[in-house]
Design a protein around this nucleic acid. Structure first.
Lengths: 207, 207
DNA sequence: TCATTAGCTGTATATATTTACATGCAAACG
DNA sequence: CGTTTGCATGTAAATATATACAGCTAATGA
């Protein structure tokens, strides 16, 4: 995912540890001491490498100006995907609205991201407009599971059903029609499986 | 709780904000700039005052050596309440099944605990058996809101409606009857308001 | 083979940061 | 009434910190 060398991973680990133990990131000199470097510049070079790889962000001119990037910072956050740009991978940066502090392991299997649900086509399955759907990223789906699918660049949430060569994407709402994909005229890709839902709502019956 | 002056609370708030926005605590000079002080010593004096009151901890000789004390740093877990023992306060230790890593501030107003839902009496409001209901602990409820209420030692989740002296607790499922409390024969206590729901489920239509 | 990258040493310096000291005013406390 | 506390100004110095420059070795890929 981030493709760090062992050494870089160790430096990143030290930053994480310092943050956890002292509440502040380390200075170059502290990194130097911890790893036994003879020059603060060794630490500086590592930090720049980590920044280049997106593991950390550096803020110039400020002491301890090191911040862990969101994915690295807290393994207990999930990116929230809003409107998915046509053609872009779901997890592309431009689709990420924000990160929420929710342990991915709260769900089984583990959630990889949250997807904001648009429309009420799955309402009978208890999935409502504006819900945050917890999604496990996988290409595989079994009949009856609710999946995040991409049909001709359009991302949709539906119940999956395969019959021989034909895949049906079934809404859970009588007002909607099933999507039938025969594999030749349209392209279909399974992006993930729904593993949970989060709703922020006071359930009030008055607007 | 901590008995801070307004000014001290403002300083503490700025430290918290800086931490949230930049990932590092502010320096004395940054505090000075933000509040328009003419001297970094004003900030220094405030920090010492906050440390004396236990709101923060200072580590001498280190830049940005400010850390929020545990009580001040907002906790990022919510207790999960399972079966509520008769007579015990909801948040009593014996009711807490476990803690889940979910930011309380993900919900508005802030969630104080999660309650495992038993039964499907609120299914038409999208609250299902075994869901985790995010609850904001409060004694107050407005008509139409979904509340956690205690009627004669029994804890239940229902929609709240008051008509004069009579309170109705309405299920969202035609198979159930409303609970009517007239305030004399039965005791009623509002424990909190529903502010969200978390479901761990793959939504599969097969058991 | 040459450019690039990772991973360092060593030196130097500008600047960021903490922190002590001296001082003042107003309000609260015993 | 004297003392402490909250809230500041103003100055100065020690020290913590970031960061540039110059160079080195070994491994890697074009």
């Amino acid at each position: 995912m981030l493709d760090l060398t062992d050494r870089q991973a160790a430096i990143l680990g030290f930053i994480r540890d310092t943050l956890a133990e002292r509440g502040i990131p380390p200075t170059r000199a502290e990194i130097m001491d911890h790893f036994g470097f003879a020059s603060p510049n060794a630490a500086q070079a590592h930090l720049r490498a980590l920044a280049r790889r997106g593991a950390i962000e550096l803020s110039a001119g400020h002491s301890r100006g090191i911040r862990l990037s969101p994915q690295v910072a807290d393994p207990d956050t999930l990116p929230l995907i809003g409107r998915v740009a046509a053609g872009a991978p779901i997890l592309a940066v431009e689709n990420i609205e924000t990160h929420h502090r929710i342990a991915p392991a709260l769900f089984r299997p583990r959630a990889d991201y949250l997807l904001r649900v648009c429309g009420d086509s799955m309402i009978d399955a208890g999935i409502r407009d504006d819900d945050l759907l917890a999604v496990h990223a996988t290409r595989e789906a079994a009949n009856g599971q609710v999946v995040v699918a991409r049909v001709d660049d359009e991302v949709t949430v539906k119940r999956f059903r395969r019959r021989g060569n034909i895949v049906e994407l079934l809404p859970a709402n009588p007002a909607y029609e099933p999507i039938v994909v025969d594999g030749s005229s349209q392209s279909l890709a399974i992006e993930g499986r729904a593993v949970g839902v989060i709703r922020r709502d006071d359930f009030s019956d008055r607007p």
